[in-house]
Nucleic acid binder design. Structure first.
Lengths: 175, 175
DNA sequence: AAGTTCATGTAACCAGTTACATGATTGT
DNA sequence: ACAATCATGTAACTGGTTACATGAACTT
């Protein structure tokens, strides 16, 4: 994950590790955080793997600027075009960088993700039906209020994502 | 985290590791998953720490039943009563077990969490104002659509949580 | 002069997952 | 007989975080 955060942020241009962390905090910081303990080793790894070039500045502060190589750029765009998956909110990170993606692939991936979302919503709805049926037969059903509420959270969560996705698929404006 | 999942699930009564995993999958499985590679070592640790007792069944299948000790029960309830925090969705796990918590503490913790949520919503709203102001001055603002959309996701997300929390604070029924 | 921000880095730790290994029991 | 499910466990790995260590430059 951290590797793609770095590559993606560097699509904007040269940056130092410090700058990358700042940028992440100010943009996707709500959902993704990075620590120097993972960031600097990642940058080193990416340079060794030919994804980035490292440029020392003589601006005294020992600052290093990283830049994408063509390989790095290709690797990032390859990752970006892969289907959106729910794992660890990776889809949110991908969509954050979606301005870089080919519009046709973008549309396709967003619609597929919406399709899956709808399936999930239907499934939770079905489970909810069963559960509330079972619950109705219990005399102490009040004891399960909070357990059930978490299922309800799931439903609301997916419905929120659905509405949001539909909005961005249509590229509607934000009020 | 896994420790409290185990303790919480065992509040219902004796269970095997296998049972715990099943129960987790069928309840909070949408948001929390556990693997045997973390579950069995956790159970071992909890027994060693005096939180659980282990009982071998001679029912051939080598099944072991785990049961909360008074220490384990106390430790769980202590954790459960601590303030709700956004970290790694731990709050969702706590609320799942909230039927076990003293109603006064429960109400207090839920309301504090709602208060924080409102602060977050206000803050994102403010950031959004600034960003859309800056964006309006750009000629290529279309290039930032998806980056901005992730900020909007954040807002929707918190608003969803807010509505959900308000519902459970009032203990309103689910339709 | 003191405090904050800029800037890089490492070592120890942590909370898990994945893949593997094993074997009994139940259902078809 | 074969597959699925029940049942436990470990070793290697992964993807990080925390705490520490260092020091220059800017701000007040």
């Amino acid at each position: 994950m951290i590797d793609y955060i770095c590559l993606g942020m560097l699509m904007q241009g040269k940056m130092s590790g410090y700058d990358i962390k700042k940028t992440v905090e100010q943009s996707v910081g709500l959902f993704f955080t990075i620590s120097y303990g993972s960031l600097y080793p990642a940058l080193k790894r990416l340079v060794e793997g030919g994804m980035l070039t490292e440029e020392e500045t003589n601006n005294s502060k020992n600052k290093k600027l990283y830049q994408l190589t063509e390989t790095g750029r290709g690797s990032f765009l390859q990752w970006l075009g892969e289907p959106l998956q729910s794992n660890r909110r990776e889809y949110l990170l991908k969509i954050f960088f979606y301005d870089c993606l080919d519009p046709a692939i973008r549309k396709n991936n967003l619609e597929n993700f919406l399709f899956e979302l709808n399936r999930n919503i239907a499934q939770i709805g079905a489970v909810q039906q069963i559960v509330s049926g079972q619950l109705a037969q219990l005399e102490n059903k009040d004891d399960y209020y909070y357990r059930v509420s978490v299922m309800h959270y799931g439903l609301r969560f997916y419905q929120m994502e659905k509405a949001w996705l539909e909005q961005i698929i249509e590229k509607r404006d934000y009020e």
